[in-house]
Simulated assay, not measured.
Amino acid sequence: MSCRACCRRLRARRTAQAGFSFVEVSVALVVAGLMSWAAFSGYETVSAQQAIERGRAEAQQLQSLVRAFSLRHGRLPCPGSAADGYESLTAGVCAAGNELGWFPYISLGLELPVQGLRARYSVLRDAAANADLAVASERTGDVAGDATFLDATDLIVGLNNAALLSMAVSRTYLTGDAGAAGAIDCAANPVTSAAYWVVVPLQDRDGDGDRLDAPHAMNSLCAASPFAPVRQASDDVVAAESPAQLAGWLRANLP
């Protein structure tokens, strides 16, 4: 074989080897990219789930505080009109008509979270039916000085009165759960009255610039059922109880 032929064959072999190495590198880069994308997607999924679990834990904590407050004071907390963490009281009393606002973190012994993560809170109030749950009222005939004057037993009576009221969108209420309770639609599917509800916002999933996701809105007495699943357009976490549920809890925990 001539030297020239040997050189041509060597160059061809080197070219083939170089081309094969380029393909290998390309495949490796593609595989690495796919693995990075999968890892990042998995991280996003895990992070979102962790945020939801934290939201659920916070909602449960706020519910426990509402219960403890009602057991001690014979009324439910008054909503905060400002996001400062305090109940909005006038001369020590929750003013008539104040049934929707911010959760009063500081009044219930908690630190105030950052603005975007503060919960909305609503409480059922109907003075005409002796069911104003945000005001301590003597409903059992006790007098000042009695051990049970203005205590949780009076709130239980108020809750029982509230349980007898027909469902109305003019009072604190819940819509469906996208399951047995029907659509999550405050206007088309009002389902049941609530003694109170707490909505803990997480991410702005519906893209409206507000962490509260539909059906929740700043001026609405409606919340989704606590059993509603997390949805693509909403990750708000809800804690709520009907008047009968809260009355049962109070009876079981009276001192």
Results as ranks from 00 to 15, higher is better:
residue 3 C to T: 13
residue 3 C to S: 13
residue 5 A to Y: 05
residue 6 C to G: 14
residue 7 C to M: 14
residue 8 R to E: 14
residue 18 A to V: 13
residue 19 G to I: 15
residue 21 S to E: 10
residue 24 E to Q: 12
residue 26 S to M: 13
residue 26 S to T: 14
residue 26 S to G: 12
residue 28 A to E: 13
residue 29 L to H: 08
residue 29 L to R: 05
residue 29 L to V: 13
residue 38 A to I: 05
residue 42 G to V: 15
residue 43 Y to M: 14
residue 56 R to Y: 06
residue 60 Q to A: 15
residue 61 Q to K: 12
residue 64 S to P: 04
residue 70 S to A: 13
residue 73 H to R: 10
residue 74 G to Y: 06
residue 75 R to V: 04
residue 75 R to E: 14
residue 77 P to Q: 03
residue 77 P to V: 09
residue 81 S to G: 12
residue 82 A to K: 03
residue 83 A to E: 14
residue 84 D to Q: 11
residue 84 D to P: 10
residue 85 G to P: 07
residue 86 Y to F: 15
residue 87 E to F: 02
residue 89 L to C: 08
residue 90 T to K: 06
residue 93 V to M: 08
residue 93 V to R: 14
residue 96 A to L: 11
residue 96 A to H: 00
residue 98 N to T: 13
residue 101 G to E: 06
residue 105 Y to A: 08
residue 110 L to P: 00
residue 112 L to H: 03
residue 115 Q to K: 03
residue 119 A to F: 02
residue 121 Y to H: 09
residue 126 D to C: 12
residue 130 N to P: 03
residue 130 N to C: 03
residue 130 N to S: 14
residue 134 A to N: 02
residue 135 V to H: 04
residue 136 A to K: 07
residue 140 T to D: 13
residue 141 G to H: 04
residue 141 G to V: 09
residue 142 D to W: 02
residue 143 V to L: 10
residue 143 V to W: 04
residue 146 D to Q: 03
residue 146 D to V: 03
residue 149 F to K: 00
residue 155 L to W: 02
residue 156 I to C: 05
residue 157 V to R: 12
residue 157 V to A: 12
residue 158 G to Q: 04
residue 159 L to H: 03
residue 162 A to E: 10
residue 162 A to T: 08
residue 163 A to L: 06
residue 166 S to M: 02
residue 167 M to H: 00
residue 168 A to F: 05
residue 169 V to M: 12
residue 171 R to E: 07
residue 171 R to S: 05
residue 173 Y to Q: 00
residue 176 G to T: 09
residue 177 D to C: 10
residue 178 A to N: 14
residue 182 G to D: 11
residue 183 A to R: 06
residue 190 P to H: 01
residue 191 V to S: 01
residue 192 T to M: 08
residue 205 R to S: 00
residue 205 R to Q: 04
residue 208 D to P: 10
residue 210 D to Y: 07
residue 211 R to W: 05
residue 215 P to W: 09
residue 216 H to F: 01
residue 216 H to A: 00
residue 217 A to R: 08
residue 219 N to P: 08
residue 221 L to S: 06
residue 221 L to E: 03
residue 225 S to R: 04
residue 227 F to I: 05
residue 228 A to S: 11
residue 230 V to P: 00
residue 230 V to R: 00
residue 234 S to G: 06
residue 235 D to T: 08
residue 237 V to H: 02
residue 238 V to D: 08
residue 239 A to I: 11
residue 241 E to P: 05
residue 241 E to I: 07
residue 242 S to P: 01
residue 243 P to N: 09
residue 243 P to V: 12
residue 246 L to F: 11
residue 246 L to P: 07
residue 247 A to Y: 07
residue 251 R to A: 11
residue 254 L to D: 07
residue 255 P to N: 05
residue 255 P to H: 06
